[in-house]
């Protein structure tokens, strides 16, 4: 007589569970409300500064001081931050010194 013993085990189905994370992918930025509407990816302050620099025909560009004079009421820090942003993005570049900027659009 042969007694066959079936080896137990093995076959239990360990289902691999892949954890599903709720989709919270947020690229950030974007539309933040009507009071701070972005135009072409620029804040109103940034586009104002850019437009002024674009309008300048001088070879050395426009100085921060002149921007400040034209943009009455705009904080000097806001202007400087806008200039820095626009420079980083390549919209403007400094000319004779770090106080004068020209637009890459104008020629």
């Amino acid at each position: 007589n042969k007694v066959q013993t079936m080896p137990a085990g093995g076959g239990a189905s360990h289902g691999l569970t892949t954890p599903v994370r709720p989709g919270t992918a947020d690229m950030g930025g974007g539309y933040t409300g009507a009071s701070d509407m972005y135009v072409n990816g620029l804040t109103p302050h940034q586009s104002q500064v850019l437009n002024l620099i674009k309008s300048c025909r001088a070879a050395e560009g426009m100085s921060i001081q002149e921007l400040k004079n034209r943009l009455k009421g705009m904080n000097i820090m806001t202007i400087k931050q806008a200039v820095e942003f626009l420079s980083n993005e390549g919209h403007i570049y400094s000319t004779v010194d770090e106080d004068h900027y020209r637009s890459t659009d104008a020629d």
Binding site: E89, G90, H91, I92, Y93, S94, T95, V96, R102, T104
Partner: peptide, 20 residues
């Protein structure tokens, strides 16, 4: 002025890389 030309070139490159 060399400095201005270089700055402009660098700015144009930054602008181009942003627009890709």
């Amino acid at each position: 002025m060399e400095r201005i030309r270089k700055n402009k070139e660098a700015a144009l490159q930054r602008l181009a890389s942003r627009n890709i």
